[in-house]
């Protein structure tokens, strides 16, 4: 009798703790702000948190205002799906990578195409501006299994990093400007030096059991986050390559993730129709928003108050954090 009483008590406590966890989840309000005519594959918020760009299977790029979500420009020029985007640190340029094997650099103010970089021998999947003062370089990844580095001013292909044995999916510069991380269908993340005289990776990070689809540095350059085809997230120590956290975040393809400015809040989006916000120190689930469409791409503003989402139904959505009304206290 006493045993069953204990079991019931434990059950009650468990249910209470579960309900309290759920009640602590942050709330986000979803708004569809516009549409591409096909799936939205890339989303990138600019440095100033005033604009974001989306890229699509419809071969266009759109630039939107923040926080309003007003469509500002549509950029046309690519001859295939536009897989990914990156704003330069000064927010004046946008780089895009496409199925047409090119990287294009656009003027963010006018929407004019400024440069076409050719040299990859397969579709370009990832692009990322270097984080130096002049945003002088772009890194790109491709189905051709390479990582290429480009001089932005001249449009010259400066270096090809080889070592991945399958298509390279995404690439990111560290914010201290010292390293580049790339990820691949070969299930590895490779960390390279930005010193152009070296060509071997500094580290090969093994921990994923599926193709790694995206990789990103935290703003303090201390951590690397990566996600894979099976829905797992791995957080790595950027200096040692040690796995700090590894967790199943979604039940379908986890194509995209992004860090908030606090270096511990990470947003993830998946084809399982969920957008989730995590405190990776736990990991603790902070928010879980269910949509009616699969998610290819996510990004957020620095304080995580707005999440930008690109969906497989062509919609572009904003998730805005619902701020709880402040309780008024009676004055004595």
């Amino acid at each position: 009798m006493k045993k069953s009483k204990n079991i019931i008590l434990s059950l009650v406590l468990f249910l209470f703790s579960v309900s309290s966890i759920f009640s602590q989840l942050l709330e986000y309000k979803e708004t569809i702000i516009g549409k591409h005519s096909d799936e939205v594959l890339g989303v990138f918020v600019n440095e100033a948190n005033t604009k974001f760009a989306t890229s699509s299977l419809d071969e266009t790029i759109k630039i939107w205002s923040l926080p309003e979500g007003k469509e500002l420009l549509t950029l046309k020029g690519h001859l295939g799906a536009v897989y990914n985007l990156s704003f330069s640190g000064n927010d004046l340029m946008l780089a895009s990578g496409s199925e047409d094997q090119t990287i294009r650099i656009w003027n963010v103010q006018t929407g004019a195409q400024e440069k076409v970089l050719t040299g990859h021998t397969g579709p370009v999947i990832g692009v990322y501006f270097s984080q130096d003062e002049n945003n002088s370089m772009i890194a790109s990844t491709s189905f051709d299994k390479t990582v290429k580095l480009w001089d932005v001013a001249t449009g010259t292909e400066i270096k090809t990093l080889r070592g991945h044995t399958e298509a390279t999916n995404n690439v990111a510069y560290s914010y201290d400007g010292k390293t580049i991380a790339s990820c691949s269908d070969d299930s590895t993340v490779r960390v390279w030096s930005t010193d152009l005289t070296t060509s071997q990776p500094l580290m090969v990070l093994r921990g994923h059991k599926a193709p790694v689809l995206t990789v990103l540095y935290s703003f303090d350059s201390q951590k690397i986050a990566s996600s894979d085809l099976s829905g797992e997230v791995v957080i790595w120590d950027a200096k040692t390559g040690e796995i700090l956290r590894k967790f199943k975040a979604h039940n379908d393809i986890l194509q995209d993730l992004s860090f908030a400015a606090d270096n511990r809040t990470v947003v993830t989006g998946s084809l399982d129709k969920h957008v989730k916000l995590w405190d990776i120190e736990g990991p603790v689930l902070l928010a879980d928003v269910t949509l009616n469409a699969g998610v290819w791409s996510v990004d957020l503003v620095s304080d995580a108050s707005i999440i930008t989402v690109g969906c497989d139904d062509g919609s572009v959505r904003l998730l805005k954090k619902v701020v709880a009304p402040v309780k008024k206290t009676k004055k004595k």
Binding site: T121, D151, T156, E157, I158, K159
Partner: peptide
């Protein structure tokens, strides 16, 4: 292939099909 105007030694990359 256009080589960049540079005052120091420089390497560039070009894969050929």
């Amino acid at each position: 292939v256009s080589t960049p105007a540079s005052e120091k030694y420089q390497e560039i990359s070009k894969d050929l099909l």
